[in-house]
């Protein structure tokens, strides 16, 4: 699961992580994986919902030292 790009959205509050992810994923090709780092706790549910509504797949998410990490595959 090699990410093509990593987006640092740490320190950003809603709705900025989603807005930044939307921009970042536009530059990728279908099947590419985007890795996202965030600290907004709301990102957990928001990213899952966003991926679902956009036809992308949330492959994995982890939490290390207060940083949430997500891997989304572009649909």
């Amino acid at each position: 699961m090699e990410a093509v790009k990593t987006l640092d959205a740490t320190g950003l509050a809603c709705p900025m992580p989603i807005v930044k992810i939307k921009k970042a994923i536009q530059e990728l090709s279908s099947g590419d994986v985007l890795e996202i780092h965030a600290t907004d706790q709301g990102a957990k549910s928001d990213l899952a919902a966003w991926a679902k509504s956009g036809g992308h797949e949330l492959l994995k998410d982890t939490e290390e030292d207060g940083v949430l990490k997500f891997w989304i595959q572009k649909g």
Binding site: I18, V19, K22, D46, S53
Partner: peptide, 11 residues
């Protein structure tokens, strides 16, 4: 604006 931009970011 939060709801509007989140909706726009969701296409």
């Amino acid at each position: 604006f939060n709801v509007a931009t989140a909706a726009a970011a969701s296409d």
